[in-house]
Design a protein around this nucleic acid. Structure first.
Length: 844
RNA sequence: GCCCGGGUGGCGGAACGGCAGACGCGGGGGUCUCAAAAACCCUUGUGGGAAACCACGUGUGGGUUCGAAUCCCACCCCGGGCACCA
């Protein structure tokens, strides 16, 4: 008998698997495919417990699928561009490439030590020209399709990262997703991908993602922020108050309240504002508001409990439904980024407008009233305005009945109401408005003023304007001789940016911004399908075979960012004819965090348990099994060293069991097909464990899958304790040992392989040996024990034949001593027999 | 404010509407040993009881049901996302 020695066997099998090419895969039409994908890591240095959890989950799913007969693609790679490499290079006086490639080597070595079943031949590193070349190529496809735009707009600037950020990358209270510094707004000309053109489809297709957590879908829907409403055009009056030709459009979700519009608002950034007040007595006050708004950070500006500020512009607009002159104000709570930057204010129906009206003494005419509003007596049916103010404590924004609203008076008002459609139709007939949908989602700002990224393949020509780099000149290679430690970027590198125009041949300047790293992660999963292709990003046939990914696993922090961008890329590539599916990831599993002492493990907090230390002490198999056993994969888990010891004990216990059975069954004497209750119980435990373990892996309940294996081991020990040597059914025990080894294989792949090939001397690899079947008949039993309830409380157990009829069961149940005790002196009113479950007696 | 999760022993966590607490950790007791480690066995929701057994028990309050941790309604607490979004 040998002792379980994880270090000796883990290294041995890792090397053997790699030399045998156990995990290389290719397309195979004869088998069902499964694409198991984990979010690829940023090569930040040593791996941490979050990595261990993420990639172990994927590895168990992949190994189980392979054993179950699937042709499994299970790749790995590195999201290798990004700012931390630049910062680290500056700190260590080296180069981002040196730092990045060294970290990749470190992480790859750790992943090998964890025993992950990757097809290493498909590994990608996004900072390799062989990879980013095709990122540029895809960018040009977007450009061809009109989805690339360079425009000037107020953008998010992170002063610490010294670059702009996409809206999705500003999180929480207006901070940078990476460094958590407060971002600033700057008006800059930048590159955008027009994700808004896909807003509706990105929202609609969330419904098709049955295998995604509700939480993630809700977050994306929230982020896309669709609202139905109408555009309404107001005619601008000149300084003398006479109507002009110019109209200002607003977006509103409540066109039914148009008769309650008592003022009109422009955002401080609205382009029309300065010309409206230029040279007037109102100019100074308006400018005061504009400057105040400009000074504030987005955090301050977006705080809703802060008083709203504004100023009258001296101008008026005409309300299209009644021709009323409405004063135009500037207000700091109106956002230029949302809608049209102009708002029709209806203070009786909108709390913000209400607050503003009260503060500046503006009218608050009621137009929608609740059924029980006392004002209804006075105003019901009144088409013209008779009341211009209310004594309400706040605005009324619920459904109600329209008053003082011309021909619409009496209709039901509210969001998506009868009155809303009627008013919009009325406006549409007169070309003063139309039903429309507005999204919160903004175009994706992808340019970054940083060095370590994928160069944007564009050239600025003084003659031809913006010119795409021709396909045959790709890749635009990121030069490696930039001195990052001096803070240089591509903009400081004439050898890079001095070029000629591909169109006219004249001197031109190459674009020096690089692309957001999220552009790389938006399609790397397609590249895995054909990772070494040097004539295209991928072969559509190969992508067609593997994609969409059947299972995607990663952190919830990408619920919007990476997952939304990847969905967008997929849809664009589909429209470009490069793939034929609508969504990249059929099922999504978002794993929880690994915590210690209630807090996320982090170096700065000093509460880190290093995976490498655990591997060195217990081996990778204990770590793998333990991190899955602690909690369901989507929940946060609290690291416990005692728990880890428990898993170590269990693996040793399982090891000894298989060793002992192997010794016993090689030339041992036993009783062939020995019967008896102990053997029946062990057969049942075997079938139950195999069945439950497989089911639980399929529904990602790895913790209960492992507990099923533990119960199996316990049952085998019970049998060996209860049945003396020489009396044991050796065929049964041999089956227990091989089934147990196979159940362990996804969780503890090295140990299972050693038990399989060496201890049990079975042919081939356990990882190619198939998932065990179970004997359904062994789960059947001649007799069943049913709990008997009296008035809902369990009072006794009745043992009856499995095929007993209800009458016999009831008779037996009512004769049980403790049941008799609880029903004596009472009338049995009803008896419910649930076959195989229980008996429920109702007395009264 | 709106939208998602989640509240079960000392702890991590189990439970197709059917014996709440599987499995593991921790605790208590024991076997083996000169002793210890390892391993193995018994025990472990709370209260009462020598025991049989009884009562209570899944955040709170109602409801549906023969039967509710599970379904419905109202609420409380915790975590997360969105938010002057018109």
């Amino acid at each position: 008998m040998t002792k379980y020695d994880p270090h000796a066997i883990e290294t041995k099998w890792q090397q053997t698997w790699e030399s045998e090419g156990l995990y290389s895969v290719s397309e195979d039409a004869s088998r069902p495919k499964k694409y198991v994908l984990e979010m690829f890591p940023y090569p930040s240095g040593d791996i941490h417990m979050g990595h261990v959890r993420n990639y172990t989950i994927g590895d168990v799913i992949a190994r189980h699928a392979t054993m179950s007969g699937f042709n499994v693609l299970h790749p790995i790679g590195w999201d290798a561009f990004g700012l931390p490499a630049e910062n680290a290079a500056i700190k260590s006086n080296s180069h981002p490439a040196t730092w990045t490639y060294a970290n990749i080597e470190t992480q790859a070595a750790s992943f090998r030590r964890m025993g992950f079943s990757y097809d290493w031949d498909r590994a990608v590193r996004t900072c390799d020209p062989e990879f980013y070349r095709w990122g540029q190529w895809i960018f040009l496809k977007f450009w061809e399709r009109g989805l690339v735009e360079r425009k000037s707009s107020p953008v998010n600037w992170c002063p610490s990262c010294k670059t702009v950020l996409a809206n999705e990358q500003v999180i929480g209270e207006g901070v940078c997703w990476r460094c958590k510094s407060a971002v600033e707004k700057r008006e800059l000309e930048q590159w955008f991908l027009k994700i808004t053109e896909y807003a509706q489809e990105l929202l609609d297709d969330l419904d098709t993602l049955k295998g995604w957590p509700e939480r993630v879908k809700a977050m994306q829907a929230n982020w896309i922020g669709r609202s139905e409403g109408a555009e309404v055009e107001f005619t601008l009056c000149d300084a003398a108050g006479e109507p002009t030709e110019q109209r200002i459009t607003v977006f509103t979700t409540r066109p039914d309240t148009l008769f309650g519009c008592s003022f009109f608002l422009l955002a401080p950034e609205h382009p029309l504002l300065s010309q409206l007040v230029a040279g007037t007595q109102f100019e100074q006050d308006v400018r005061g508001i504009v400057e105040m708004a400009a000074k504030e950070t987005s955090v301050e500006r977006s705080s809703s409990d802060r008083p709203k500020r504004g100023a009258f512009t001296g101008r008026y607009v005409l309300n299209p439904v009644n021709g009323e002159k409405v004063p135009v104000w500037v207000a700091d709570y109106v956002l230029m980024e949302y809608g049209t930057g102009a708002v029709m204010a209806v203070p009786s129906g909108d709390q913000r407008d209400f607050d503003f009206a009260r503060h500046y003494g503006l009218a608050i005419p009621p137009v929608v009233l609740a059924e029980d509003d006392p004002l209804l007596d006075a105003l019901a049916g009144k088409k013209a305005r008779v009341l211009s103010d209310v004594d309400w404590p706040g605005a009324f924004d619920a459904e109600g009945v329209l008053v003082q609203s011309g021909e619409f008076t009496g209709m039901r008002g509210g969001k998506k109401s009868e009155a809303m459609h009627a008013v919009t139709a009325w406006l549409a007939e007169r070309r003063l408005g139309r039903e429309t949908v507005n999204f919160r989602l903004r175009d994706w700002l992808i340019s970054r003023q940083r060095y370590w990224g994928n160069p944007i393949p564009a050239i600025h020509c003084p003659e031809c304007g913006l010119v795409p780099v021709p396909e045959d000149q790709l890749p635009v290679v990121l030069p490696l001789d930039v001195d990052i430690t001096k803070g240089e970027t591509l903009a400081d590198h004439p050898e890079f940016y001095e070029t000629t125009c591909p169109k006219c041949g004249g001197a031109a300047k190459r674009e020096t911004d690089t692309m957001d790293t999220f552009t790389c992660s938006s399609w790397y999963f397609l590249r895995y399908c054909d990772a070494r292709n040097d004539s295209a990003p991928f072969d559509p046939a190969k992508v067609g075979y593997w994609m969409p990914a059947d299972q995607y696993i990663g952190g919830i922090e990408h619920a919007i960012l990476h997952l939304l961008y990847s969905r967008f890329y997929t849809k664009v590539l589909r429209d470009a004819g490069m793939c034929s599916f609508d969504e990249p990831f059929t099922n999504l599993l978002t794993q929880g965090m690994v915590k210690l002492d209630g807090a996320t493990m982090s170096k700065s907090r000093g509460n880190v348990v290093a995976p490498e230390d655990i591997i060195a002490r217990y081996g990778a198999d204990t770590l793998r099994a333990y991190i899955l056993f602690m909690a369901p994969p989507d929940k946060d888990l609290e690291w416990s060293h005692e728990g880890l010891e428990g898993m170590w004990r269990f693996l040793n216990r399982a090891w000894r069991l298989v060793e002992e059975i192997a010794d016993e069954t090689v030339g041992g004497s036993g009783v062939a097909a020995a019967g008896g209750p102990a053997a029946v119980a062990l057969r049942r435990a075997t079938a139950a464990s195999v069945s439950k373990c497989g089911d639980d892996i399929a529904r990602f309940q790895f913790n209960t899958a492992l507990s099923a294996i533990m119960e199996f081991v316990n049952a085998a020990y019970d049998y060996r304790r209860d049945v003396p040597e020489g009396m044991r059914d050796l065929a049964l025990l041999r089956g227990v040992a091989t089934d147990l080894t196979r159940l362990l294989a996804p969780f503890a792949p090295h140990m299972a392989e050693e038990l399989w090939r060496v201890v049990l001397a079975e042919p081939g690899s356990v990882h190619r040996g198939g998932w065990p079947d179970f004997d359904a008949a062994a789960l059947e039993s001649d007799e069943v024990e049913l709990p008997v309830q009296v008035n809902g409380k369990v009072r006794d157990q009745v043992t009856v034949a499995a095929d007993a009829c209800d009458e016999d069961i009831v008779a037996a149940a009512l004769a049980l001593p403790n049941v008799v005790a609880h029903i004596s002196g009472k009338t049995v009113r009803k008896v419910v027999v649930v076959p195989g479950k229980l008996v429920s007696v109702v007395v009264g």
